[in-house]
Design a protein around this nucleic acid. Structure first.
Lengths: 182, 182
DNA sequence: AGTGAAGACTTCAGAACTAAAGTTTGAAGA
DNA sequence: TCTTCAAACTTTAGTTCTGAAGTCTTCACT
């Protein structure tokens, strides 16, 4: 078998115990929150990734669709703006758009009023893909929070936004570049 | 100026409003929790990334150090086990270890009792790097949670682990491969 | 007009990854 | 013993990213 024991991911409790063993001045309560947050987020991303790949699009493509939809009708943005919004270099954006154009998710054309600029526009198919992904995502999210009462949901949302404000206040912005979309 | 307006990241509230505008059957309370969770996690990762790069190590290297330390003394693992633990292919692990060996963070040697296996072992310098990173991380984490009372911390930890259990129960495991460390 | 400079995007070279094929070692059965 | 198979790791080919150089358009100043 040769499956070395201990390779399977430890439970949250095991992991916190390991942290305490190796690093004495650790507040287990803090570590529990931080580790649970990180782990929960990862699991959710795995779930989203499965859903989008079931729709035949990659996570990278989903992010672009999201940015375009959230920009509002007529669902147009320039490659440079998209790059800033997604936290990518313009070079990476060029290639991503290449792929998405060939798949029919977006169109690319020059802005005739200012021929330096390029306009990336969502196609009807791209918009439909986003809607399908959202339908799947909302089902998953509602299922995830199913055990939480309305009061617990309110409290959780409030605490998380409080933490978020604190982080955002502490860190002006990561090198001027924005990170991935929610 | 040519800085197209609307490129800066929207606030959480603006983003939720955009979601509601584009997708009617959305529970804003659910979306608030999910978006805050995701955004908070991202901001935290940016902070960790700055701290580790200030220590002269990459995030990738930090993950390897973490896995080795948490495995406990004598801080040894095989490349294959490390790859599973970090959610990488064995090929990627080979290259990562190459880099870390040249930087003196780990050593690589054949297992003499079973020459198919390779042993990656943390060096004293690698362990020290991990400890420094942990010292920075705990300061940041304590600062982050500063406004939360002990009761709120307990409640938050409890709710998050409850959600975590729910996700883990729902999804057996992502294709048999483990994701990144917390 | 004519030149210079800045902006927006693309192209190119290099880094880190994945998937799949290749190599070496150990173990099990003919 | 010899053969065959499986396991563990490495190597190779191809993808997607970053950083830097390159191209094309526009604007400002002379």
């Amino acid at each position: 078998m040769a499956e070395t024991p201990g390779v399977t991911e430890p439970t949250l409790e095991e992991q916190i115990a390991a942290y305490q063993r190796e690093f004495q001045d650790l507040d287990p309560q803090v570590e529990k929150i931080v580790s649970a947050l990180s782990r929960l987020n990862r699991r959710m991303n795995v779930a989203y990734g499965r859903q989008t790949s079931a729709l035949g699009i990659s996570n990278a493509e989903w992010e672009v669709l999201k940015a375009l939809v959230l920009s509002g009708a007529p669902y147009r943005m320039g490659p440079g703006d998209l790059a800033k919004r997604l936290g990518l270099t313009p070079a990476a954006m060029t290639h991503r758009i290449d792929r998405m154009v060939t798949e029919g998710l977006v169109t690319r054309e020059r802005d005739e009023s200012n021929r330096v600029r390029v306009i990336v526009e969502l196609t009807a198919e791209g918009r439909e893909k986003w809607l399908e992904a959202m339908r799947l995502a909302t089902v998953f999210e509602e299922d995830l929070l199913q055990d939480l009462s309305p009061e617990e949901r309110t409290a959780l949302g409030e605490v998380l936004t409080r933490l978020l404000r604190r982080v955002e206040h502490a860190q002006p912005d990561a090198g001027g570049r924005l990170a991935d979309l929610d």
